[in-house]
Amino acid sequence: MKDQEVKVLTNVKFTWTVNNFSEVTREKLYSDTFFTGPYSWRIGICPELSISKSVKLMSINLYAGDNVNFSVERISGNFKLSLVNQVETNSTIIKESENIQLNQGDNNVACACSLLIRCFNNITHGCPGFLVNDTCIIVAEVSVNDLGLHDHNHPPSFMDFKGLCKIEKEYVEVLEESCSKYPSLVECHINRKRSQRFNEYSFTALGKLLHFLKTKKVKEMMIDDACKELQYLWDEVEIRFDDLSWLEPHVKSALTFFEKAAKVEKLKGDVADLEEKAKTMKAEAIALDADLEKTKKELAIAEDGFDLDDQLGCGIP
């Protein structure tokens, strides 16, 4: 199969046009998902966020993740949100967040940038342009770097996988091998007509799991984080593929290594404690032997010329 290198975008500008704004009745409204390389983003708005009876805000938030999966464990970059003034661009309201590191939050999302608009309805009347023909426009600008994620000297490259999605090159070989033996892995995603993003998450998780099992050594399972990583990958893969009966024994066996390793470590500690206790007891026994020999000698001296059967008045005329 010929490698198809995919350029990973690190900058993107996404424009969300919210039509019929006055008819929005939901507490939260989300834009379509957009991407920078493998990272997914959405804009979310709360049209009327009540702070008090007299004060209402419209909140605009840029979220990493799409409530299905957080793209990576950590994302670092610069982010900007703009509420566009369609009449006077100089009046556009902008909020920027620079050098922000995002970590996974609740529901597999994290907020990268927030913009609060006080009394939005009053603003639109006092400063025309934010709401034109019942339409408002919000722009998100995302600039992502791979700080803490990849080696910049060896950035990840992506390859087309079975026409379903793009996968990091290092996982493709193990995926090809497993999918050739178990074609249902691919068939179940084709038959269900899953989205490219869903497929990417599924096969990336499976690729990471297979790579983990093929590259990790037993001694590495003695580290708690390694066990947690394997369990997380297995939980992720298990809900995305129909039949993993061929893989489950290997995963379960690997997970037991941690339990066995923990038991081995405990027993090693017990042996060390008992050996130390035995040394102490041996030293005490040696000291007791010495005391015993000394006492025996003292007894022999004390008994010399001393007979308990002698009469008390022996020798009296």
Rank of each mutant, 00 (worst) to 15 (best):
D270Y: 13
C188P: 09
L312G: 03
D225H: 08
K208F: 00
Y63P: 06
I75Q: 02
M1P: 05
F198I: 12
E73G: 06
L233S: 02
D270L: 15
G305A: 13
R197G: 10
W246N: 06
E284S: 10
N153Y: 07
I239V: 15
M221L: 15
V72W: 00
F14K: 06
L29A: 11
D289P: 02
K252H: 09
I138H: 02
D146K: 00
D134Y: 01
A285Y: 12
S40W: 02
P183W: 13
F161M: 03
E259V: 10
H154F: 10
K252C: 07
S184W: 08
S22Q: 12
L288A: 07
D309P: 05
R240N: 09
G65M: 08
F158G: 04
A226H: 13
V251H: 02
Q196N: 05
E23Q: 12
R118H: 08
R118G: 02
L81F: 12
N108Y: 01
Y30K: 15
N191A: 12
T10G: 01
I51A: 07
I123T: 11
C227R: 13
P38N: 02
K263H: 09
D224Q: 10
D66F: 12
I43D: 01
E168C: 03
I190Y: 09
E229Q: 08
E98G: 08
V142M: 01
H154G: 00
V144T: 01
C111K: 13
M58P: 12
S157K: 11
K296C: 05
E248T: 12
T33P: 13
Y63K: 11
K217Y: 11
R192L: 11
E259S: 07
L230R: 09
S97W: 08
V174R: 11
G269D: 07
F158R: 13
